[in-house]
Amino acid sequence: MKITTLMVAVSSLWAAMPALAQDAPDVDCENAETQMEMNFCAEQDFDKADAALNKAYKRAMASQKKADADVEETMGANSVGAVAALKKAQRAWIDYRDGHCEGVGFQARGGTMEPMLMMGCKAELSTARAKELNELAQGMGN
Rank of each mutant, 00 (worst) to 15 (best):
A69K: 05
D70V: 06
D70W: 08
D70G: 02
D70T: 08
V71E: 00
V71N: 02
V71D: 00
E72H: 04
E72A: 11
E73F: 03
E73N: 09
E73R: 12
T74S: 14
M75E: 15
M75F: 10
M75A: 14
M75S: 12
G76T: 07
G76A: 07
G76N: 05
A77F: 09
A77Q: 14
A77W: 08
N78I: 12
N78F: 14
S79K: 12
S79R: 14
S79T: 07
V80Q: 04
V80F: 09
A82D: 02
A82G: 09
A82V: 08
V83S: 07
V83R: 03
A84L: 11
A84P: 08
A84T: 11
A85E: 15
A85R: 15
A85T: 14
L86H: 05
L86V: 05
L86W: 02
K87Q: 15
K87Y: 10
K88R: 15
A89V: 08
A89R: 10
A89S: 15
Q90M: 11
R91I: 13
R91M: 13
R91Y: 10
A92D: 15
A92S: 15
A92N: 13
W93P: 02
W93D: 11
W93T: 07
I94C: 09
I94E: 12
I94N: 10
I94P: 00
I94H: 08
I94L: 15
D95C: 01
D95N: 14
D95H: 11
D95I: 12
R97I: 03
R97E: 11
G99K: 11
G99C: 07
G99A: 11
H100K: 13
H100V: 09
H100I: 01
C101M: 07
C101H: 01
C101Q: 03
E102N: 13
E102S: 13
E102V: 10
G103V: 05
G103C: 09
G103A: 07
G103P: 04
G103E: 07
G103H: 00
F106Y: 14
F106Q: 13
Q107R: 13
Q107A: 13
A108R: 00
A108D: 03
R109A: 14
G110D: 00
G111Y: 05
G111A: 09
T112F: 10
T112W: 08
M113S: 07
E114M: 14
E114H: 08
E114F: 05
E114R: 09
P115T: 02
P115I: 03
P115N: 10
M116L: 09
M116P: 00
M116R: 01
L117N: 02
L117Q: 00
M118K: 11
M118H: 04
M119G: 08
M119S: 11
G120K: 02
G120S: 10
G120P: 00
G120V: 01
G120C: 04
G120D: 03
C121H: 02
K122V: 03
K122A: 09
A123D: 04
A123F: 01
L125M: 12
S126M: 06
S126P: 06
S126T: 08
T127C: 06
T127E: 13
T127H: 11
A128M: 12
A128L: 08
R129A: 01
A130E: 04
K131V: 11
K131M: 09
E132C: 07
E132F: 05
E132Q: 15
L133G: 00
